[in-house]
């Protein structure tokens, strides 16, 4: 009797062919994007999305074409941060879906743009008995569709704003094997630093290039006098980076205007690039570009 391997096809569904086709479509889209960078943190609440938006602003102001994929499927915030309204009508054609265009012409795709109202949650058609296996598989497919079916066009940089935690990295590494690298983000608290070390260890063992570690909310900057004060107590993040053998990308002070500006779609960096926080963001971007330039040689 014939065995599984003796049967050349699957009898008509051509599942392998469909998967190959999906991969080709993904490659067609991603090959037009020069550099893909993931920004992640082990823990939530470290200001990852705000930093991603402002890194994008800095790159755009240097004349680069930039896009952001909001890979935080269940807590999407990038569209709002860049001023892409939820009620924008989606432009869908056979080729794909047009991305939103945010501040400074930054292209965006986020689950938020696919929902009918600002307060609509990302909920799937399954009932409350949906299992983790379904949801996880569905989210992997959703991420592939967001990457593949968005008409990104030619971009210099695609920033991938990751959800908290490092579990989605396996998915991204599989979809974007040419990823230039990941930017790990922490705040100077013991809890955040503890978790980010796990993320760094995981990415190192997966063979994902680590561009470096950023200490966000490193200090508090008074918007009136630009004096800096401490916000959190924790270990020395620069030393932590050294211990893990990765580059320290810099300390970004917290500025209250960063959230006020991004809430209205007007990016902090574009208005306050000469503030201590603005200069720190520029410093981080400089090191990211340096890593990519060195890596490409």
């Amino acid at each position: 009797m014939k065995t599984y391997d003796d049967l050349a096809t699957d009898g008509g569904s051509n599942i392998i062919g469909q998967v190959v086709n999906q991969r080709e479509k993904l490659r067609f889209r991603l090959d037009k994007i020069k550099n893909k960078i993931a920004l992640l943190s082990g823990k939530g609440g470290v200001g990852k999305s705000s930093l991603t938006a402002n890194v994008a602003a800095c790159l755009a102001m240097q004349g680069h074409k930039v896009g952001i994929l909001d890979a935080d499927l269940n807590g999407p915030s990038i569209a709002k941060l860049l001023g892409v309204s939820n009620d924008v009508k989606l432009q869908i054609s056979a080729d794909g879906v047009q991305p939103g265009e945010g501040s400074l012409g930054i292209k965006i795709m986020s689950m938020d743009m696919l929902l009918p109202s600002a307060d609509a949650p990302v909920m799937w058609t399954e009932g409350k008995d949906a299992t983790a296996v379904w949801v996880s598989t569905m989210e992997c497919t959703a991420l592939r569709e967001l990457l593949t079916d968005t008409i990104w066009g030619e971009l210099d940089y695609l920033l991938i704003d990751m959800p908290p935690g490092s579990d989605r990295m396996d998915n991204i590494r599989d979809l974007v094997p040419e990823l230039a690298g990941v930017v790990e983000i922490t705040i100077p608290s013991n809890a955040s630093q503890h978790i980010v070390t796990k993320s760094i260890t995981k990415n190192s063992s997966l063979g994902v290039p680590i561009i470096g570690l950023v200490e966000n909310m490193a200090t508090y900057v008074c918007p009136h006098c630009n004096e800096e004060g401490e916000l959190f107590e924790g270990e020395d993040t620069e030393q932590l980076a050294k211990n893990k053998g990765i580059t320290f990308l810099g300390r970004v002070p917290f500025d209250t205007r960063i959230s006020r500006r991004t809430e209205t779609g007007s990016l902090f960096y574009s208005e306050f690039k000469d503030s201590p926080t603005g200069k720190a963001i520029a410093g981080v971007v400089g090191k990211i570009l340096n890593f990519i330039e060195t890596d490409s040689r």
Partner: peptide
């Protein structure tokens, strides 16, 4: 485009 997302989002556009 976005076949799976479109058909499985409980509240999609």
């Amino acid at each position: 485009p976005m076949s799976m997302v479109g058909s499985t989002l409980a509240q999609g556009k």
